[in-house]
């Protein structure tokens, strides 16, 4: 059954414990991330009050809050350091969830 390896499906063998014990980020990194999160939040609120930016408010906010979302998930939830299984368990459902939000607001005429 050589094709199984070619299909790229993980082996059924027991993965040694060290595969899981990859180094997580250091405390110093966590503090830096917190500072970045704080700055991004401040930026979001500033953007909200700048009237000149009103036409592009939504894209800017999506970008800023998306970055915050990604930072927390990647570093605080360790997804950057964990294996593909957990990444798939989160990103798959997240994709369907976002698709359903987009589909519903499109069906209600907010996009087109």
């Amino acid at each position: 059954m050589t094709s199984e390896k070619a299909l790229g499906i993980e082996s059924g063998g027991v993965v040694a414990a060290h595969a899981h014990e990859e180094p997580h980020a250091s405390n110093r990194t966590y503090v830096v991330i917190a500072l970045v999160l704080g700055v991004l939040t401040a930026l979001e609120v500033m953007v909200f009050y700048v009237e000149a930016l009103a036409p592009v408010l939504v894209p800017i906010l999506i970008l800023l809050s998306g970055t915050k979302f990604a930072l927390v998930v990647a570093f605080y939830m360790h997804l950057k350091f964990d294996g593909n299984v957990l990444r798939g368990l989160f990103l798959g459902p997240l994709f369907i969830a976002v698709a359903i939000i987009v589909a519903l607001i499109a069906l209600y005429g907010y996009l087109l």
């Binding site: 499906i9 082996s11 059924g12 299984v85």
Partner: peptide, 17 residues
Amino acid sequence: FIVTILNLRAPGLSLMR
């Protein structure tokens, strides 16, 4: 069942088996 099937397979029983 998700955890059971992903984590508790016997040695050698890869997902494609």
